[in-house]
Design a protein around this nucleic acid. Structure first.
Length: 559
RNA sequence: UGCCCGAUGGUGUAAUGGUAGCACAACUGACUCUGGAUCAGUUUGUCUAGGUUCAAAUCCUAGUCGGGCAGCCA
C-alpha cells in the first residue's frame, strides 16, 4: 500500500541523534545491560523545579521512554540540613504536569541508608576507607593540598580497620558530635583530581531528616550515595549535568570497589540550560521571591515550572523547546525567543479564539436599527472541529484604542476619520466623526464587501465583561543579567525590567465569564492568555502568556 | 596554579574523514476576515597556527578563549 517514491515522513521528523541518544542506541545494539534502559531524575528536595530541571526531566524520562525503558523519580535527600518535605509534593506535581510518569518507581535516597551504611563498612573492612578525626579546617588547610602539589596523608589513614569500624558504629550510635569524625575513602592523596584525595563518604549530622526522622545521625555524601542509589535501582544510564564530570572517577571508584552490587551504572554529563533575560539559580530565584520582586514562586514571570504553567505555557511547548535546544556538552545560552516560538506554535493549533479589548475606545454605531443582535465567530481557524460560537453585537462597541487614529501614519490599516475597516466576524465600520470620547461610525454588513486593508477586534459594550489582564514581559532587560553584572561590577538587580508586569482593565466577550482557571485562549490580534487561578466569578483575571507576532509594531517602531 | 571539559552564522544545533544543513531571530515578497497563521525567498558560520591525508568542522600537536573542580552541599 505504501508508495515507495514518497519519503517516510518520520524521517524528516526524526529527533537529532545527540550524543546521549547515540550512546544509548550503541549500548542497545551491543546488547549491554540486557537490552534495558533505566534512567532517573534525582532532584534534591530543597527548592522548586525550573525550566532548567525541565530539560533534565525531558532527557531523563525521554531517553527511557524512547527506548522502551523506565525512568525513576528519586528524591536525593542525603543532607537533612537542606531539605524540606514541602518540596517533595511540588516536584512530583511538576514532573507529572510536564507529562511524565514514573509508574511505581518513586524512591528516596534515604530509603537506602541502611544498605549504604553497610557498603561503607565493607570499604572500611577492605582497608579502602577509614575514620578520620581531622577537622574540616585542618583537612583543607594542611592535608588536602592544592594541585599541582600533592596532599599529605591524614594521620588516621592507617588506622586499623577494626578500629575504624568500631568508630563508625559509634558515629552511628550518636557518640560523637557533628564534625568530630568522618569516613574517608582511601584513594590517592597525590591525584590531580581533588575528588580522589581521600573524599568524605560519611559525616555526622545530628539533624531531623524530613523522611527518616531521627533514625540516623550519620549521612552519606552525594559522591558516595549517588553511585549506590543508581546501582541499587539498576540504573543503566545516569544522566547529569556537566559540573559532575570531575566526580565521575569517584563515582566509578565507589562502584568498582564494592562487591555484590546489583548493577553497573554509567554516568554521562550534558550541559545545563541557560535562558536569555532570566536567572536560573535556586538562590537567585529565592531572592526574587523573598525581596518581593515577584509575587511568589509561581509568579508567571518566573522560569519555574509553576510560573510557566501559570503563565499559560503548555507542557507540549516546553518539551518541544527542550528538543529544539538539543543536548550537548557546550555551555550555551538559549534564546527565550525560541521558547516563545514553541509556545505560539503549540497554542496556535489548540487555543480557542476569543475577542477581548484591553484598552477600550468607545464606538457608537449611527445606523443602529440595521445591525444584527449577534454574529457567528470561528473558534479556531486552525482546527475546524472547534466549531463556531455566537457573539453578541450592539450599537455600542469597544475597540482597541490603538486601532483608531485621527492622524494616522502611512501604512496604517485600521480605523481613521472617513476610513473603513473590517470588524472581525461582523462586517465593516466607517468612521463618520469623533464626538467626545466616542468614535461615531456607520455599520455595513459583510455582504457590502468594502475594500479595506485591515480587520480590528471588538466587544459589545453592553455585553462585555470586565477583566483584569496581566501583561508580562521579560523579567530582566538584558540577555544575561548575571554575566553582565559580573562584567560591569554591578548588582544583577539593576537589570530587572521595571515593566515586567503591567496590568490592564479590559473587556472580554461574555462567554469568557465561564472560563476555568489555567484555561488558555487566543485573544484575537493580541496574544495568548491564560485564566489566572486568582480569577473568580465576577472578577476575571487573565495572564498574557505571549503576544502574537506583531509586524506592525516593528514598522511603527522604526518610524 | 593544577586537572577535567568545551569552541560551527546573531542564538541553539547537524554533518561520525568526502557538497557545511536545520530551527529560532532578522530581512524581502506572496496570501489572508487575526498586520496572526501559512507559503516562497534572502543575509550571516567551522577560534588561531601548524601537521596527517587525494580529501579535515571532523584526526594529531600547540596556542587562544570560555566553563567546571579545590564543602563533612548536591
Amino acid at each position: 500500500m505504501k508508495n515507495e517514491s514518497i519519503p517516510e515522513p518520520s524521517e524528516a521528523a526524526a529527533p537529532a541523534k545527540h550524543f546521549i541518544r547515540q550512546i544509548i542506541e550503541d549500548d542497545l545494539r551491543a546488547g549491554k545491560n540486557g537490552g534495558r534502559v533505566v534512567t532517573r531524575f534525582p532532584p534534591e528536595p530543597n527548592g522548586y523545579l525550573h525550566i532548567g530541571h525541565a530539560k533534565a526531566i525531558c532527557i531523563d524520562f525521554g531517553m527511557a521512554l524512547e527506548h522502551g525503558g523506565e525512568c525513576h523519580l528519586r528524591m536525593d535527600d542525603t543532607n537533612p540540613t537542606k531539605e524540606e518535605v514541602e518540596y517533595i509534593e511540588s516536584i512530583q506535581e511538576d514532573v507529572r504536569w510536564l507529562g511524565f510518569d514514573w509508574g511505581k518507581h518513586f524512591y528516596f535516597a534515604s530509603d537506602y541508608f541502611g544498605r549504604m551504611f553497610d557498603c561503607c563498612a565493607e570499604l572500611i573492612r577492605k582497608g579502602k576507607a577509614y575514620v578520620c578525626g581531622l577537622t574540616q579546617d585542618e583537612w583543607s588547610k594542611t592535608y588536602r593540598g592544592a594541585p599541582p602539589a600533592a596532599g599529605q596523608p591524614s594521620p588516621y589513614r592507617d588506622r586499623p580497620a577494626e578500629e575504624s569500624l568500631r568508630l563508625f558504629e559509634e558515629m552511628r550510635a550518636g557518640k560523637h558530635a557533628d564534625g568530630a569524625l568522618c569516613v574517608r575513602a582511601k584513594i590517592d592523596m597525590a591525584s590531580p583530581n581533588l575528588h580522589l584525595r581521600d573524599p568524605v563518604l560519611y559525616r555526622i549530622l545530628h539533624a531531623g531528616h524530613p523522611h527518616t526522622g531521627n533514625t540516623w545521625c550519620v549521612y552519606p555524601t552525594y559522591d558516595f550515595a549517588h553511585p549506590l542509589e543508581d546501582a541499587f535501582e539498576g540504573i543503566t544510564h545516569s544522566l547529569c549535568t556537566l559540573e559532575f564530570e570531575v566526580h565521575r572517577p569517584l563515582y566509578d571508584w565507589v562502584i568498582d570497589n564494592l562487591d555484590n552490587l546489583p548493577s553497573r551504572p554509567r554516568q554521562y554529563e550534558f550541559a545545563r540550560l541557560n535562558l536569555t533575560y532570566t536567572v536560573m539559580s535556586k538562590r537567585r530565584l529565592l531572592e526574587l521571591v523573598n525581596e518581593g520582586r515577584v509575587r511568589g514562586w509561581d509568579d508567571p514571570r518566573m522560569p519555574t515550572i509553576g510560573g510557566l504553567r501559570r503563565r499559560g505555557y503548555t507542557p507540549e511547548a516546553i518539551r518541544a523547546f527542550v528538543e529544539a535546544v538539543g543536548v550537548t556538552k557546550f555551555e550555551s545560552l538559549s534564546d527565550v525567543a525560541l521558547l516563545e516560538h514553541c509556545v505560539r506554535d503549540d497554542l496556535n493549533k489548540r487555543a480557542a479564539r476569543r475577542l477581548a479589548v484591553l484598552n477600550p475606545r468607545r464606538v457608537v454605531i449611527e445606523n443602529a436599527s440595521e445591525i444584527p443582535a449577534e454574529v457567528d465567530a470561528v473558534n479556531n481557524p486552525e482546527d475546524k472541529s472547534a466549531g463556531t460560537r455566537k457573539v453578541p453585537f450592539s450599537s455600542e462597541l469597544f475597540v482597541e484604542a490603538d486601532d483608531f487614529m485621527e492622524n494616522p501614519p502611512p501604512k496604517y490599516f485600521r480605523l481613521t476619520p472617513g476610513g473603513s475597516v473590517r470588524i472581525r466576524y461582523a462586517g465593516f465600520l466607517t468612521c463618520l466623526r469623533v464626538e467626545g470620547d466616542a468614535v461615531v461610525c456607520r455599520w455595513s454588513p459583510p455582504e457590502a464587501a468594502l475594500k479595506v486593508k485591515g480587520t480590528i477586534h471588538w466587544v459589545s459594550a453592553k455585553h462585555a465583561v470586565p477583566a483584569e489582564v496581566r501583561l508580562y514581559d521579560r523579567l530582566f532587560s538584558v540577555e544575561d543579567p548575571m554575566a553582565k553584572a559580573a562584567a560591569e561590577g554591578k548588582d544583577y538587580h539593576e537589570f530587572l525590567n521595571p515593566d515586567s508586569l503591567k496590568t490592564a482593565t479590559g473587556f472580554v466577550e461574555p462567554g469568557l465569564a465561564a472560563a476555568n482557571p489555567l484555561e488558555r485562549f487566543q485573544f484575537e490580534r493580541l496574544g495568548y492568555f491564560c485564566v489566572d487561578p486568582d480569577s473568580k466569578a465576577g472578577r476575571l483575571v487573565f495572564n498574557r502568556a505571549v503576544t502574537l507576532k506583531d509586524t506592525w509594531a516593528k514598522v511603527a517602531a522604526k518610524a
